[in-house]
């Protein structure tokens, strides 16, 4: 039970990171982006490639910081992957969503995002194969915290949780302490008024894709570190990140973070009662509960 709770918190951190960008995109561009979760997969695979390249160029970077399996090359690769993933989110917006935004309604973008997701996911499968992959072949040894009940924690898991919380805290400081953060919140609150006040909307859209892409890439890397990487990563996280945004209320960054942890913990705990095959349906039950009890989420204000 406690083990399930701990695992759920860890998955929750990954979902939260993914949901922050999605909730901003859904609020500002007003469409449910079914291609969003593929950013996690793009980020994780980009980190995998950069990690291999860096380790080959400078073998000294490839030694893991014990007791983690994380090496300097993986840390650098993650930063590069965050940049690349942010950039690819911007490129997809330019190639597809911006052009559809210009001439059709928001639901056409939902539709297009389905197609984009299908293309990205299967292009990844073609490039990297169906098989599951790992960053490092080192065995991550678990520390036994308690034997009855049995609770195991790996150093990597602690690192991932701390790193995810640090990223969220950094984003919180940007939102509340910088003029860029003020502009971002102003656009989220009222795009027209923000533009009157001199905020350039198109710049903010690019910024939101970059931030969302970067955080999603980190989420993808963190998930891979504690589990494994396969082309299904994006589709497996699609419903959880949507559930997190709906629980938190579309447009609320803090709601998305809280929602992510809620979905993660609920899915983790459900493993204690349900067979594991039903876990993919857990986020759906949470969406259902929110729609029944509080349709606009915990902190949501979108009415139409």
């Amino acid at each position: 039970m406690i083990q399930n709770l701990l695992d759920g918190i860890l998955t929750g951190a990954v979902i939260s990171l993914g949901a922050i960008g999605l909730t901003m995109v859904m609020h500002m561009l007003r469409f449910a982006n079914f291609a969003y979760a593929e950013l996690l997969a793009i980020g994780a695979y980009a980190a995998l490639v950069f990690d291999r390249v860096l380790a080959a160029l400078a073998p000294a970077l490839a030694t893991a910081f014990k007791p983690l399996t994380v090496s300097a090359s993986l840390a650098l690769a993650t930063l590069l992957a965050m940049a690349i993933t942010g950039a690819s989110a911007v490129v997809v917006d330019w190639l597809v969503f911006r052009r559809i935004r210009a001439k059709a309604d928001a639901l056409s973008m939902v539709f297009a995002s389905f197609g984009v997701a299908l293309i990205i996911r299967n292009a990844i499968t073609l490039a990297f194969g169906h098989n599951a992959q790992l960053f490092s072949q080192d065995i991550a040894f678990a520390t036994v915290l308690s034997t009855d009940p049995l609770i195991l924690v790996k150093a990597d898991q602690v690192f991932v949780l701390v790193a995810a919380l640090a990223l969220m805290a950094a984003f919180h400081i940007v939102l509340t302490r910088t003029s860029f953060g003020f502009a971002l919140r102003a656009v989220a609150e009222n795009p027209t008024l923000a533009q009157v006040a001199g905020v350039r909307l198109s710049t903010m859209i690019v910024a939101v894709w970059l931030i969302g892409g970067g955080l999603s890439a980190a989420a993808g890397v963190f998930y891979t570190l504690t589990n494994h990487l396969s082309p299904a990563l994006g589709s497996n996280f699609l419903l959880p990140v949507f559930a997190a945004t709906i629980v938190g209320g579309i447009g609320s960054v803090y709601g998305a973070v809280l929602g992510g942890f809620l979905v993660g913990v609920a899915s983790g705990l459900s493993l204690a009662v349900l067979p594991s095959g039903y876990v993919p349906a857990m986020p759906f039950l949470i969406i259902l509960a929110v729609l029944l009890l509080r349709p606009h989420g915990l902190f949501g204000e979108d009415q139409a």
Binding site: A32, L107, V110, I246, L291, D302
Partner: peptide, 8 residues
Amino acid sequence: LRHDYLAI
């Protein structure tokens, strides 16, 4: 609700 809730 918002039109994309049905999609989700």
